[in-house]
């Protein structure tokens, strides 16, 4: 059964969480330097679930989200997904562009700033993962999507769905207390990549 094939044992779960913790830690530091603010981080969570359950985990199928998406190329391909609730993305954009706009419209400038923040987070995360696993990992240029979480996720997972029933999500949450910006950082390794990562760290 395929289900058995990709079940993670406790040790593998722990190892993945630990790696995610270190990667996200470095990403948080980079983010904190960019914003010149303290960034809190929650202990990462590892979800292994049916592809069709992913929209629920990322906040509900028709929730409006602002998302920065990267494809990851190299030895362990996958997708990186940064998700912000609309209000939080608004505050983040305001912080980055040093404006205080209250409207719900994201200007070119706002979108570009959010993408840039995403690139910095992703760069720091992947660098750490790369030096840990000695796998070559290269992010694509960022794409920004402002739409329903479900619509975004189905698009990302649809290709994955042809090869597997399951998706692995490594979820790290970043929190900036002052302006209360919360964002989720998801790493979704392709099925083969999970094996590559686990093998590289000897788990």
């Amino acid at each position: 059964m395929l289900e058995e094939d990709i079940k993670l044992n406790d040790k593998q779960q722990d190892v993945l969480k630990e790696i995610a913790n270190i990667c996200a830690g470095n990403a948080a530091t980079a983010f904190s330097q960019l914003l010149n603010k303290k960034i809190e981080m929650n202990v990462p969570r590892v979800h292994l679930l049916r592809v069709e359950k992913v929209p629920e985990v990322v906040g509900g199928a028709d929730t409006l989200v602002v998302s920065v998406v990267f494809q990851v190329f190299g030895d362990a391909p996958g997708v990186i997904l940064l998700l912000f609730p609309q209000k939080d993305a608004r505050s983040l954009a305001a912080m980055l562009t040093e404006t205080t706009v209250d409207s719900n419209i994201f200007t070119e400038m706002d979108q570009s700033a959010i993408k840039e923040a995403g690139s910095i987070l992703t760069g720091a995360y992947l660098n750490t993962l790369s030096s840990f696993t000695r796998l070559g990992l290269i992010p694509s240029t960022p794409s920004i999507v402002i739409d329903m979480a479900g619509a975004l996720v189905d698009y990302i997972l649809i290709e994955l769905a042809t090869v597997t029933e399951y998706a692995l999500l490594i979820d790290s949450e970043f929190i900036e207390e002052d302006r209360s910006v919360r964002g989720h950082f998801f790493l979704l390794p392709n099925p083969g990549s999970l094996t590559a990562i686990l093998k590289a760290i000897g788990a």
Binding site: P55, G60, D147, M148, G150, A151, L152, D154, Y155, I158
Partner: peptide, 13 residues
């Protein structure tokens, strides 16, 4: 009927 069938957040689906 009576019922409403809903499907939320359809992208490429």
């Amino acid at each position: 009927s009576p019922a409403i069938l809903t499907s939320l957040g359809i992208g490429s689906c």
